[in-house]
Amino acid sequence: MSKKALIIGITGQDGAYLAKHLLSKGYEVTGSSRDVMASLFNNLNTLGIRDQVNLISVSINDFRSVFNAIQVYDPDEIYNLAGQTSVGLSFDQPVEAIESIAIGTLNILEVIRLLNKPVRFYNAGSSECFGDTGNLPANENTPFAPRSPYAVAKSTAKWLINSYRESYGIYACTGILFNHESPLRPERFVTQKIIAGAAKIKAGQLEVLQLGNLDISRDWGWAPEYVDAMWLMMQQDKSDDFVIATGRMESLKYFAAKAFEYFDLDWQAHVEIESSFFRPNEILCSIGDPSKAIKMLNWKHPTDIDGVIEMMCEAQAKKYLN
């Protein structure tokens, strides 16, 4: 019998890559969005797997909706990738951030507890929980110092996971993922905005790209490798939390320069700094230490930031220059 997986929040970058990864391992995959009838599932279509996934509607804020989905589809593994995904948006919609991330996670944990089934649960954490790491890579023992409603919600979800794991023996784990990108990122993410902007400028469709603070530095990885880490966490004898990162940090200015360089452009000639894009409480430095995941999960991340930029640029070049 093949394993059954439920991916709550399958429409995003990680959900699509995770679905593809699980299908390649013989899983029966069910994926949810808030409203199946209204969702386009572009990422699943791009990866050519939409017809291989059972798609359902689940509102993670609604306990009954979560309960029905888990009871009916009876998964062996649940991956929660749903909830608000934008740090910037969380400052404008803090209540939605808390409800969709913290309350949503609590709903899943309560359903697992009440149904008392041997289901394994992965919850998507975030490097934003650490706040500003400086030049010292954060590991699983680094204290949280969240600076946004999004990060507060992710921190709350992580401690709920720990509480239910210790109190009820539930197999539940948190992947504390640092930034990870791919061609599936929408342009509201700054990395894709930069690369798509450079491609459009090269194609003559845009003259100037407006960006915010380019002095921030991040630890950027390749999304398909990060979803492999999610799956590996769920295959261990004992559930635990893991930092997933590359251990290399570069500035957004570096990212922009490399992206424009791919298109034979000078970024400084085409980029304007727009102060309205600055966040109320910006994290300047964020870098992670993946040593535990490399040692205990045998996780590998062969793609560095330069490879990430190149592959994302290749995808945008096909879109705008061919």
Score class of each variant (00 low, 15 high):
residue 322 N to W: 15
residue 9 G to D: 08
residue 25 K to P: 00
residue 152 V to S: 08
residue 78 I to H: 07
residue 85 T to G: 03
residue 308 V to C: 09
residue 216 I to T: 12
residue 234 M to S: 07
residue 309 I to V: 13
residue 84 Q to H: 06
residue 165 R to N: 03
residue 301 H to G: 09
residue 188 R to H: 11
residue 161 I to D: 07
residue 197 G to N: 06
residue 58 V to H: 06
residue 182 S to W: 06
residue 70 I to E: 06
residue 85 T to H: 05
residue 33 S to K: 04
residue 79 Y to F: 15
residue 60 I to H: 01
residue 62 D to G: 02
residue 295 K to Q: 14
residue 96 E to G: 02
residue 144 F to A: 12
residue 75 P to C: 07
residue 78 I to G: 05
residue 93 Q to H: 10
residue 195 I to F: 15
residue 226 Y to T: 10
residue 281 N to R: 06
residue 11 T to C: 06
residue 19 A to Q: 12
residue 208 V to G: 03
residue 113 R to N: 08
residue 204 G to C: 10
residue 39 S to R: 07
residue 308 V to I: 11
residue 149 P to I: 15
residue 261 E to H: 09
residue 18 L to N: 10
residue 317 A to P: 02
residue 106 L to D: 09
residue 262 Y to V: 03
residue 71 Q to D: 10
residue 172 A to I: 04
residue 165 R to T: 05
residue 210 Q to V: 03
residue 283 I to F: 03
residue 256 A to T: 11
residue 75 P to K: 05
residue 253 K to T: 00
residue 203 A to Q: 13
residue 240 D to I: 04
residue 100 S to V: 07
residue 170 I to T: 03
residue 118 P to A: 01
residue 10 I to W: 07
residue 297 L to E: 13
residue 311 M to S: 08
residue 178 F to V: 00
residue 33 S to D: 08
residue 137 P to V: 08
residue 128 E to I: 00
residue 116 N to W: 02
residue 184 L to G: 00
residue 262 Y to R: 06
residue 110 E to Q: 13
residue 59 S to G: 03
residue 231 W to I: 00
residue 211 L to S: 09
residue 162 N to G: 12
residue 321 L to Q: 10
residue 126 S to F: 06
residue 258 K to R: 06
residue 152 V to C: 12
residue 106 L to K: 14
residue 105 T to S: 13
residue 203 A to F: 12
residue 81 L to A: 04
residue 45 N to V: 03
residue 322 N to R: 15
residue 287 I to W: 12
residue 207 E to L: 12
residue 10 I to Q: 05
residue 39 S to I: 02
residue 265 L to E: 11
residue 320 Y to D: 10
residue 248 R to P: 00
residue 144 F to M: 09
residue 278 F to G: 01
residue 138 A to T: 11
residue 229 A to M: 06
residue 139 N to H: 09
residue 285 C to D: 14
residue 232 L to K: 14
